[in-house]
Design a protein around this nucleic acid. Structure first.
Lengths: 200, 200
DNA sequence: AAAAAATTCTAATCTGGATTAAAATAATTC
DNA sequence: GAATTATTTTAATCCAGATTAGAATTTTTT
C-alpha cells in the first residue's frame, strides 16, 4: 500500500535494523556483537532478524552497502555544489562526516570486508574502489584548476579517507562532539591542500 | 641461557606469532581469522599456539599492546629528536608509519578493543588514552612555540591518528607503496598545520 | 469480522572453531 | 647418553552463538 517502496514497513524496519547493527558493530566489533545484541536494540528476538536478512553475513553486507551509498551520495552532492576542486573536497568531507555523525544513524565502519562471502565481498570492494577513484578525480581536478597543490592523489586520498573512516571508532554519539567534528574536519583535512594560504 | 630475556627462543617465537596474528587480523578481520590461519603462517598446529598464549582473546590483547608500544616508542623518539612542535609531529608520523609498514612486521589495527575482557580492555584503553594525550600535548607545544597554527587539538589529533590507524586497511606489504606512504604522509598530514607556509 | 498475509516468538538444533588432555618429539642439561 | 625440560602434535571435547522449524500473534485485506 505504500506509495514509495522505501516507505514500506518492511523497508523501514530493515533500515532500523541496519542502523542498530552498524551501531553494535562499530561499538563492540563484529565478533563481539551477537545477533541478540542487535535484536535487543530493536526490542526484538534474535530469530526475528531472519525475517529481514538471510544471515549475519548478509546483515554485515547490507550495512556496508548502506555506508557506501552514503559516501557516494555525499560525494555526488559535493561535486554538484562545489566550484573548485578544493571546494568539492571540503564539501565532500562535510557531507560525509555529516552522514556519519548525523541522525541517519551510524554508518558501519568497513572492518570485515574480507569475511564477506566472495560475491558480496567483490561487490563492496567494487563500490569502495569506485569511491576512491572518484575522490582522486576530484583531487586531480583541483590540481588542474589550481585550487589544490600538486600532490600524490592516491596517498592524499588514502590519508583523508582514512581519517573519516576512523571517526566511528572514537565518536560515540555525543552531539557536542559531532558539531566539533563537523566544524573542524573539513578545515583540518583540507587546509594543507591550499597552494597559497592566506597570510593573516 | 639467553643474555637478554627478549632473545629467548620463547620470546622470539611469540613475537613471530604476534606478527602473524596482526597480519591475519588486519587482512581477514578478527572473526574471519581462525587460530588455524595464524598457525598456518607459522607452519604450526593451532593447538601449538596455546603454548604461547592462554587463548585467542589474549592473542589479540598482546597484538594490541605490541601496537601500542610501537606507537609510544615512535612518539618518544620524535619528542627526543624534534625541535619545534611541528617537527615533533612530523617525526612522530614518520616513525609511527615506519613501524607500521616497515619490517618489524604489521601492527594490528585496534578494531576489537571492546571484545577484550575487562582487565585487558581497560589496559589497552589506558595505553590508547595516554598516547592521544601525549600527542595533543605535542600539538599544544607547537601552538605555543608558534610552529603550529592554533587549532582544536583534540580534533586535530583524532584526524591525524585516524589516518595513520587506517593504513593497515589498505596497505598490504608492497614496499613501493610503503616508501610512498613514508614520503607523503608526514607532509600531507602536517603541512596544514603551518601558520605561515612558504610562498614558493 | 473472517481470511489472508505479515511479523514475531518459542524452543530446538546445529556448527565452526576455540579449547583441552595426553602423547610424541625435539632441545637442553647434567 | 640418560634425564629433564621445552615444544609441538593428535585427537577429542565443548560451547556460544548462528540458524531453523513451526507455532503464535499482529496487521492488513476483503
Amino acid at each position: 500500500m505504500a506509495r514509495n517502496p522505501d516507505e514500506t514497513r518492511f523497508q523501514l524496519q530493515r533500515d532500523r535494523m541496519l542502523r542498530a547493527a552498524a551501531y553494535c558493530f562499530n561499538q563492540k566489533g563484529y565478533s563481539g556483537t551477537s545477533l541478540k545484541d542487535v535484536a535487543d536494540r530493536l526490542s526484538l528476538t534474535d530469530a526475528a532478524l531472519y525475517y529481514y536478512v538471510r544471515n549475519k553475513e548478509e546483515l554485515v553486507y547490507l550495512c556496508y552497502v548502506r555506508a557506501a551509498d552514503a559516501g557516494r551520495d555525499a560525494m555526488q552532492c559535493a561535486i554538484d555544489e562545489g566550484q573548485s576542486g578544493l571546494e568539492q573536497v571540503q564539501l565532500y568531507i562535510r557531507y560525509h562526516v555529516e552522514s556519519i555523525v548525523g541522525e541517519n544513524g551510524p554508518l558501519a565502519i568497513m572492518s570485515e570486508i574480507p569475511s564477506l562471502k566472495p560475491a558480496h565481498r567483490d561487490a563492496v570492494l567494487e563500490l569502495s574502489r569506485t569511491h576512491s577513484a572518484r575522490f582522486e578525480a576530484i583531487l586531480e581536478r583541483g590540481i588542474a584548476d589550481g585550487s589544490i597543490a600538486s600532490c600524490d592523489v592516491r596517498m592524499t586520498g588514502n590519508a583523508i579517507m582514512g581519517s573519516i573512516n576512523w571517526i566511528p571508532k572514537w565518536f560515540h554519539g555525543d552531539q557536542q562532539v559531532a558539531q566539533k567534528i563537523l566544524d573542524q574536519f573539513p578545515i583540518i583535512l583540507s587546509c594543507g591542500l591550499k597552494p597559497v594560504p592566506q597570510v593573516s
